[in-house]
């Protein structure tokens, strides 16, 4: 999957993985909020991209479809430090009209997330 232009602003790369694709965002001036920490908006952008990649992955297994974001809720658990951040999405339900997707971002250990998001998408099929 080709990532949209905003993913380039975040410096995202897709990391090979056995399961759902993992996105990596390097720490850089362009994604900083308060000095030394990631901007919450950049973390949210990373989570959104991870969700879209996961959903695209799931839809590719079916007949495909366009997605329209309805809403997102982001919980911020830890400050994002000066190191690479990874994120992966998980489609919790793929219906005919709506997809529910979760995404988690972490730095050191996947079970110590720095942020997590729940997203709802409308799916326009055919």
């Amino acid at each position: 999957m080709k990532l949209p232009p905003y993913a380039e602003v975040l410096g995202l790369e897709i990391e090979p993985s056995d399961g759902a694709p993992v996105l990596v965002m390097p720490f850089a001036d362009d994604v900083v909020g308060r000095p030394g920490f990631l901007h919450g908006g950049a973390i949210s952008g990373l989570l959104e991209m991870a969700a879209i990649v996961a959903l695209d992955h799931a839809l590719a297994g079916e007949s495909g479809g366009r997605i329209k974001p309805v809403g997102v809720t982001v919980d911020f658990m830890r400050g994002g430090r000066d190191k690479p951040t990874r994120a992966a999405g998980r489609v919790t339900r793929l219906g005919t009209r709506v997809a529910n997707v979760e995404a988690t971002a972490w730095q050191d250990e996947p079970d110590r997330p720095i942020a997590a998001a729940r997203m709802n998408y409308l799916i326009v099929r055919g």
Binding site: P4, P5, Y6, H39, G40, S44, L46, V72
Partner: peptide, 23 residues
């Protein structure tokens, strides 16, 4: 153009909107 999340329609990604609203 580099803030776009949906290249087909040219719509902004939600990251920039969330950043804007966070600030």
């Amino acid at each position: 153009p580099d803030l776009v999340g949906d290249p087909e329609r040219g719509v902004l990604a939600s990251g920039p909107i969330i950043t804007l609203m966070d600030m």
